[in-house]
Amino acid sequence: MATPHRAAVLGSPIAHSLSPRLHNAAYRALDLDDWSYDRFEIDEPALPGFLGGLGPEWAGLSLTMPLKRAVIPLLDEISDTAASVEAVNTVVLRPDGSKAGDNTDIPGLIAALHERGIEKTESAAILGAGATASSALAALARICTGEVTVYVRSKRRADEMRQWGDRLGVRVRPADWADAVRAFEAPLVISTTPAGGTDELAGQLPAQVGTLFDVLYEPWPTPLAAAWQERGAPVLGGLDLLVHQAVFQFGQFTGDPRSPLAAMREAARSV
């Protein structure tokens, strides 16, 4: 009988997470019958105890808010990618008991863009300045050859994004949210705002737009994404990011070189 292997997603709230659906679909598609993937409602105070109680059957963890930074002091090492944004969304539990952290949001975002034929861009715009915006900046550091304009609502956020740009090696120009409609002049726009954050902009699109990557997947399409699609322009959504980053997690957890992209995407679409 094969040794069981376990993985799970942790966070709070966690009931909405699609990760179990994606990873279990991958296991089924690739005949990894001894693998299972669950979800656990875990907040910051509970995290050390949960990690300390894991047995040898555990191979990996996916982390969502509010654990992406809280986990870092509990790990034996983190990748350069995770360190660059001070956020870990992937923990690999090694046979020797050590715990290694990584961030698959960044390569996942890049892979989603590559799939749509976007390997380089001369400039880009980011809407919002939260935690996801720093990951977007880290991704753009690898594919953007010019300036990234970040539209924010406060001077504090502007200063933060400028500092992230300096750290990541990206030329960042903060701009006031009141001028956010000008973001649509960029060939690539990444929206990182919470639900409703860009609704006011949906009716202000010019006739010609580039590519939109709206990181939300619920509700979908957002008013901005729907308006963008009406222009016939390329739109990527949160499910694109979720699926691609999960593919990277699958590889790290299982060590299996096969790609479960098709199975994960089908599982995401069938929600």
Rank of each mutant, 00 (worst) to 15 (best):
M1Y: 15
M1F: 13
T3Q: 10
T3A: 14
R6M: 07
A8Q: 02
V9C: 02
L10D: 06
G11E: 12
S12K: 15
S12M: 15
P13G: 08
I14H: 01
P20F: 05
P20V: 02
N24V: 03
N24A: 03
N24D: 04
A25F: 10
A25D: 02
A26Y: 01
R28T: 12
D31S: 10
D31F: 10
L32A: 01
D34I: 06
D34K: 06
S36W: 14
S36H: 06
D38K: 04
D38T: 11
P45L: 06
L47E: 05
L51N: 01
L51Q: 09
G55A: 12
P56L: 13
E57L: 05
A59M: 04
A59K: 08
L63A: 00
V71I: 05
V71W: 15
P73E: 06
E77Y: 13
I78Y: 07
T81A: 09
T81G: 03
S84Q: 09
E86L: 05
A87H: 09
V88T: 05
V88P: 00
T90K: 04
L93G: 00
G97E: 01
A100R: 03
D105T: 00
P107V: 03
G108W: 13
H114V: 04
R116M: 14
R116N: 08
K120Q: 15
E122N: 08
S123C: 10
S123D: 11
G128D: 10
G128M: 02
G128Q: 03
A131D: 13
T132D: 11
T132L: 06
A141R: 15
I143Y: 11
V150Y: 05
V150A: 14
R153P: 03
K155T: 13
D159G: 06
M161N: 05
Q163C: 15
W164P: 09
G169H: 10
G169V: 09
G169R: 10
G169A: 08
R171N: 15
D176Q: 09
D176S: 13
A178H: 14
A180H: 06
R182K: 13
F184E: 07
E185M: 11
A186S: 10
P187G: 07
L188M: 04
V189K: 05
I190V: 07
T192Y: 13
G197H: 12
D199H: 09
D199A: 15
G203E: 11
G203R: 11
Q204N: 08
L205W: 07
P206R: 09
Q208A: 15
Q208Y: 09
G210S: 11
T211L: 13
V215W: 15
P221Y: 15
T222W: 07
L224K: 11
A227D: 02
P234I: 14
V235E: 10
G237R: 05
G238C: 06
L241C: 04
V243L: 03
H244T: 00
Q249S: 04
Q252Y: 01
D256N: 01
P257S: 07
S259G: 00
P260L: 01
R265V: 03
A267L: 06
S270Y: 01
V271E: 14
